[in-house]
Nucleic acid binder design. Structure first.
Lengths: 338, 338
DNA sequence: ATTCGGCGATATAACGTTGTACCTTGCCCA
DNA sequence: TGGGCAAGGTACAACGTTATATCGCCGAAT
């Protein structure tokens, strides 16, 4: 199943077969020979040996996909899915590595990928660390969910617009007040450790609130954006009364908030609307379905591959729109209802 | 950064360098030359070109990881994680492909992996289809979560033991009756479309119940094992009363059951114990934490790689124990409490 | 009739390894 | 003194491609 065997079957030289099968433009092979070669290749089921081809051309048609530990877990497997689909469409495969967020492991992974001749590397991360530079030995690079230092293109969710979307959705449903923010407190000083994307999400929320001349009825920061904290925060907020909408900074917080609302004897969305971010698996499991601004993981993964395959993209930030997934957790506030 | 450059630096031939760096046992290189070579390689930061090595030796130190669509999503990314970690420990990388469960795509993926010279292929699936044979062109194969037809080793969760574990946990907590089964009805004929692993889970549950001389107070099959069905089933069961434990066939059903219990004004675990299977992300999000019999995804992935790296394993089923993750949803039944 | 040009294809040299066969040198022993 | 042998290397071929230089041939131009 090598070129040599096809050549023998077609009665030509190896080089001729190579030229024909690669549609080499400046080759002078007669139509008849060409036909014989193509037929022979087909009959023998010839498939080029990618290893040999890579050695010769130093193009492997393979990309590395490097992620910190979290990416492969639930959260961002979507990035991998999207990247995988896009890669296959272009004839590429993905060689994957996990770094557990450790610099030494990342170094090692990059080196190993380089040894294997990858044509490019996608760096995917859960948290948008600020430092997105990697010593990639000249291999083209794209960052996903990870703001770069300028060297490489970064694919990021458009968190600012997403933040605005969430607020606008509440406003359009009729909410003009009684909105509480679960997970962040704008009155507190900005924590330096907060991810870049989260900060943008905050900014979008603040801007859209301001655009409508609104203020939060209540707001509370949460150290961890976990159900437990969402439950506690929402509970406190509901006790004070006058809250008709909970804007939660992610679905896990919203999950906790749901429980607090239920426990308080209130109904979603009749008494309290809930909206959040991420479109986690939880969002579909909850009853009623949680309306949430989705992180477009698959699309981000696909765009990463495109940035790698399309030549010479300028090093920029690609902001991917965050679509809102409307389910059943947002309605008009009680006061506004007939 | 090639062997040739190291050779020149050390003042020896390329072959000598190769022999030394590979610890070739039947090579006769003097300790002095050996030292010079090692030093030169270190100083120059030499790393072997895997492509060339693969071409020469036809061993790529790369495995293919082929999954149906679902595997990369939430459910079994653990398999990938485990496989990845185990592979790296042995110096292997993973080349991944998705088939969407489609035979043609699988065919194509296998061919492409073969073109790239993978040393083995892991087939991972969400549902344990019965047919686990693949045309792998002589490439060693392991099935994960996928019962093979005999040709290849299959790594499967020990569902029978897991089923027994779930029941035993309830019994040991003091439950001697009032147990309802959410998701299956033993009185109904067996549906042929049900996955093999699910059937074994059923059998384990039935065997352990029988071992304790117990019968289900209630049981209900669910077409989809989704929260919605779990909610509906649990609701009906609780209405009839006398139910003190809900044995749910997966965490999503349990999720729905939680809501039904809460709505009925009952508490978990004081009034009703809940136990289930999978150890989904949901299990940690729920309050109180859901006690569940886990599918050991990571371990399964790791074992798959081991089966590939350890030579000449006989083709068998490897049954991986399902550990129970005890959280807070199981307690003694009300009647048994002081 | 010789040369030229172009067409059709082949021969050859890499790409970086690895494994085997071979070569050189020195030494020992018959 | 020459043959053998071991030690310490080197040379070479091969893995399957691809790109470039080369070759043979036929018709046409000189």
């Amino acid at each position: 199943m090598t070129l040599a065997e096809v050549a023998k079957a077609a009665g030509v030289s190896v080089g001729a077969v190579s030229q024909v099968l690669n549609d080499n433009p400046n080759s002078r092979i007669s139509p008849e020979a060409r036909a014989r070669i193509v037929a022979a290749a087909r009959d023998l089921g010839y498939r080029p040996n990618m290893i040999a081809r890579t050695l010769r051309t130093s193009r492997s048609h393979t990309f590395g996909f490097v992620s910190d530990a979290v990416t492969i877990t639930r959260f961002a497997s979507g990035i991998l899915r999207g990247a995988l689909a896009a890669a296959r469409a272009e004839g590429y495969f993905l060689l994957i590595a996990e770094t557990a967020g450790d610099a030494r492991q990342e170094e090692e992974a990059i080196a190993s990928l380089a040894d294997r001749g990858v044509d490019g590397i996608v760096f995917a991360a859960m948290k948008s660390r600020s430092s997105g530079t990697h010593a990639t030995r000249g291999i083209p690079t794209v960052n996903v969910n990870l703001a770069g230092d300028g060297g490489a293109t970064s694919i990021l969710p458009d968190e600012h617009a997403g933040g605005r979307t969430a607020v606008r959705t509440l406003v359009e449903a009729g909410h003009r007040g009684g909105i509480a923010l679960v997970g962040h407190d704008f009155r507190l000083p900005v924590d330096g450790g907060i991810a870049l994307t989260a900060r943008r999400r905050f900014a979008g929320i603040a801007d859209e609130m301001a655009a409508h001349g609104l203020d939060f009825t209540d707001q509370q920061a949460c150290a961890d954006w976990q159900p437990e904290q969402g439950y506690a925060a929402a509970r406190r907020m509901l006790r004070r009364g006058s809250v008709t909408a909970l804007l939660c900074l992610n679905d896990r917080l919203a999950f906790g908030a749901y429980q607090a609302v239920t426990e308080a004897g209130l109904r979603i969305p009749e008494d309290v609307s809930v909206i959040s971010f991420d479109d986690d698996e939880l969002a579909t499991a909850l009853r009623p379905g949680l309306t949430t601004v989705a992180i477009p993981h698959e699309r981000m993964g696909a765009l990463a591959i495109e940035a790698l395959t399309s030549p010479a993209e300028p090093a920029v930030e690609v902001l991917v729109p965050m679509p809102i997934h409307v389910r059943a957790s947002v309605a008009a506030p009680p006061a506004a209802r007939t």
